[in-house]
Nucleic acid binder design. Structure first.
Lengths: 208, 208, 208, 208
DNA sequence: TATGAATGAGATTTCATTCAT
DNA sequence: TATGAATGAAATCTCATTCAT
């Protein structure tokens, strides 16, 4: 959607992302962005023919960063730590990055009120992110485990829930307890004592 | 903020809420609402001096319903059930009400990009909601318990996380596991084995 | 498409039509019109939500006038005159009204480059105009006559051809000869000496 | 107006003409054309300093083709046929070439809403076309004849009228009757029985 | 209470044209 | 010859808000 070329493209994205992180895409006009980048509206149009196209690329950047951030953090921590601690740090890392959280919610909003194409593209990246979470769990708890399905679902919910929580409240969430909660899913004696195991639905509308 | 008057006030709110649940406040014009209600823009303006005022009242209605819904559900279930099961049902009840979820996120967006007054009013209702969650926990697990703080924080995160999750994906979340996770916080042998207890911060910026 | 109401609606149409007759709809901006009427662009929008809607109503006015003009002229001339002379005057009347001719061509252009809805509405009025021509011929030469079909087709071609001719050249067309030409179609000894009679096609795409 | 140069000049014209025939010059951007030709806007600008210059050349091509088409058709038919039949075929040939008709009208529009220079150039070619029509009539009915003036005027009106007619309606016009109508002008007993002969005005504004 | 009319400010988009390389 | 980048001016449309009646 975006043209490929040198320096300005990136600068536009960077500046636009900063403004949108602060005010949301709906409240950020192309004038605002052009002014902040130091170019004319015409030039902005030359690089991004529609506002949507710009938001697309920002969405891409956002997920790139979030996904790379997870991977880098896990690699940095290595295997020296307790899996539970690693999960706690992951959750905290994502939960405390407020600028990213705001952007995350603003992009979600764009998707909710956007067109099908927007939604499609967003979902692709979202699933990629979810996949990364599952890889992290596999790395921490072994490749195959029946708890992976509920654990990754719960991890996602924690991350998203923290996003909203951190946007509304200022104090940190109980990251440690959340980590333990996920860890518990992998403990033999905890597994569904007398209950049904959580199995992700696989119908056509299922998402991963 | 809203004038007190006859019949239309409620009708306006109802219709406006329906439209905003579907499209978001930013993408809903006062024209849209007036048309749907069957009144003129002038009349709409007579009842609500600004668009913000209308969104305020919708926010009020929204939290009223969410809070009342929780209370009613807990009362309906009574004490016959396992606390864990009640929690699971609470989470499911909130997580599967998609129209409410959408509205919830749209209102959050309004707050994020709104002015201070809007934020203030929103916070009042939000804390009220949080208070209700704590009451529910107190009812389920006893009035005083050190786990209440992390448990209510986690409950909130679950609820909000599910809101987003349900908006993006179509399949249900692992409500049962979430409920157990909260339940575990109240189990003696689970409590912070060799770790620090979660304590909510109480600085001025703290929110409850 | 247009709102029904008092004075300004008509004034807008009148002024807009004058400007569009001179410059064409494509080269007439809503700003131009608003300025000429003495209202703001917002007010113009209040009365006509799109430029298309405005052009629709102008198209309506245009055909109204052209059709009424034909009827009035024929009625004025009554039966005192030679049919041929009446036809000549009709052709001249339409051919020499340059402002109307320009508008006619500008509207045709809008239809050619417009959407299906525009085309639809235009065709309705166009056929109505064609119908009026046939009524005029019926009045001049009797209700039923095999020459009606080619005669009305030819009359239309004359009128439209004159429209272009008068736009490009300044001198008058040979109205009298055209009239005779049509008249000849009704003369027994002229009818298709050894040729096929012109019959309008009646397939689904046929237009009248 | 156009620079003389290698291969692209012609390709540009060809492609541009095709697009403009379909959408009209006003609705065709230089971007559209550049993209379709497969060159950059900069390169297009190198070949045509303005959009107007491009339309000029397309106008030239258009009249070249129309004029050459008439000449070639008449030559092909030779003298074997009835003059009336030749006229009918000429009219049909022009009337049924819809792409050319569209272009013809679109170019007329450009002239109507264009500047004086555009108009000037257009008129030169238009008169050339008219001249060709007169040559055709001379060939069919003899070099000198008082009916030439009204006949050529009427021929032009027929051609232009058919252009519009064919754009609006789908069914063919009564070409044969039109041909006879012109033919009749050359018949002694038909000439202005008791009327004034049609004489083209020769004032400065007269066009041929 | 209710409304039709009006509006200003601003949003997105478009595009012919220019120019350095 | 060719082009990518840039731009200014303008066009259409949107809408919360105001106000006389």
């Amino acid at each position: 959607m975006a043209k490929t070329s040198g320096i300005s493209q990136d600068k536009i994205l960077e500046v636009a992302e900063a403004i949108i992180s602060a005010k949301g895409a709906k409240d950020t006009s192309l004038s605002d962005i052009a002014k902040a980048v130091g170019i004319s509206k015409g030039t902005l149009y030359y690089h991004y023919a529609t506002k949507e196209a710009l938001v697309y690329d920002i969405t891409g950047r956002h997920f790139d960063r979030v996904i790379q951030g997870m991977i880098r953090l896990v690699e940095k921590l290595g295997m020296k730590m307790d899996p539970e601690e690693i999960l706690a740090m992951l959750l905290e890392d994502l939960g405390e990055a407020h600028r990213i959280s705001r952007l995350h919610l603003y992009l979600l909003y764009e998707v909710m009120s956007g067109n099908e194409e927007m939604r499609e593209r967003y979902m692709v990246r979202y699933r990629e992110w979810k996949q990364t979470m599952q890889s992290v769990l596999a790395r921490l708890f072994g490749a195959e485990h029946p708890a992976h399905a509920p654990a990754s679902a719960m991890l996602l919910v924690f991350v998203e829930g923290n996003t909203i929580r951190g946007t509304v409240f200022d104090d940190p969430a109980p990251y440690r307890e959340m980590a333990r909660c996920i860890h518990n899913l992998y403990r033999a004696d905890q597994q569904n004592p007398g209950g049904q195991a959580y199995v992700e639905t696989k119908d056509p509308k299922a998402s991963w």
